[in-house]
Design a protein around this nucleic acid. Sequence first.
DNA 1: GTGGTCTAGACCACG
DNA 2: GTGGTCTAGACCACC
Lengths: 121, 121, 121, 121
Amino acid sequence: MQFDNNEPIYLQIADHLCHLIIAGHYGDGDRIPSVRDLAIELEVNPNTVVRSYAHLLEQGVVENQRGIGYFAAKDASETIKTLKRDSFYKEELPALVKTMRALDITVQELVESIGAYHETV
Amino acid sequence: MQFDNNEPIYLQIADHLCHLIIAGHYGDGDRIPSVRDLAIELEVNPNTVVRSYAHLLEQGVVENQRGIGYFAAKDASETIKTLKRDSFYKEELPALVKTMRALDITVQELVESIGAYHETV
Amino acid sequence: MQFDNNEPIYLQIADHLCHLIIAGHYGDGDRIPSVRDLAIELEVNPNTVVRSYAHLLEQGVVENQRGIGYFAAKDASETIKTLKRDSFYKEELPALVKTMRALDITVQELVESIGAYHETV
Amino acid sequence: MQFDNNEPIYLQIADHLCHLIIAGHYGDGDRIPSVRDLAIELEVNPNTVVRSYAHLLEQGVVENQRGIGYFAAKDASETIKTLKRDSFYKEELPALVKTMRALDITVQELVESIGAYHETV
DNA sequence: GTGGTCTAGACCACG
DNA sequence: GTGGTCTAGACCACC
């Protein structure tokens, strides 16, 4: 896995796990990799993974059982989507509208740009 | 002015100045506030304002005359719009599309959300 | 049985057995479940049950006969009550008083809360 | 400061700060010691203090300003009391009632014990 | 084996 | 100066 230097690694790892959960890679209650294993796999310090998991635990995306491991929480996928949706509507959308206003970009132009972008990907 | 703790203050100040320039508050060649004055007005460390101005200088949005002060550059407004447009299409748009896909948000929903948001502001 | 993640499982199991003994479920000298059976019943690692039993053995609540099994000790119920009483007056009570002081909770409020709680259970 | 080995140091530090805030040592918006200073004062690794502060930040007890420091949040004292009150009624009270039932301790006995304990302190 | 905590020390962006 | 992050390595309780 490649890390972007502009965002904390532990958040990138957390986000990556969220993607895997949403994609169905880990279903409700499935065990996710141990701290050590994931650290080795990602070539990262175990503490960094600990931090990622603590972050997800806090958000209710994962749960843990002493001495056994971490597990995807019940309805983890929904929880993640709700969290992301919230942040999208509360943060990204206002920022988008602000930018559009500053640049005189109309909704129509935006839609066209998105369409054009879709084709390039 | 209120600062968001998630973005460097110096960038928030720079952005704020850009908005003022685009809004016509400072025309081409107009003098912008001295570092000291702005720092006092914003209740911010002068070094922070220095950094904001350095950032704008780098982007060609402002110019400075030693010992006199900082001035809005020629075509500052256009320069800003070009810069923002670039970053919008190269960074924000891809991020937007990515988020929309992850959350199963359709273009139609997006348009409606923007419309709804417009009304609340 | 549901386990609370904030307390070691082996202690929770030990406590649970104490409750059963006090409740008369196991009388003096009665055989308690084998490590293996209890582990299966509680869906827990046998080692964890071993630790619970070792803990109870140490406290004189249970006794064991090599190759035969574990048995509730003579006067187990009394032993448990004495132990709990001690820990209650030496640890829980001081903690309770400390908390009450920190939160400005009066004895009267406490009594009322206990009364209210009784009704909900 | 002396630390109890049975509870994480970072939580003990956090708790200690809560006590200071409730006691009025730090009023709303007051700056609390920098991570480094507190680490030196408590003879603890800075990372441990970081963890304490992160914990308090999460609970809304403190706030931070980039590059400046941490500050007691608005109504920090109330926030702390609410948090503690919640945990008291949801966790300690049920545990208390459970213990009292197991030991056949009446409310009257409890009140008397508290009274007796008060005198010894 | 698992996670939880802590120390030590480093580098970075920011004010 | 401040906090934020990361690495390295250690010890512990617990399953």
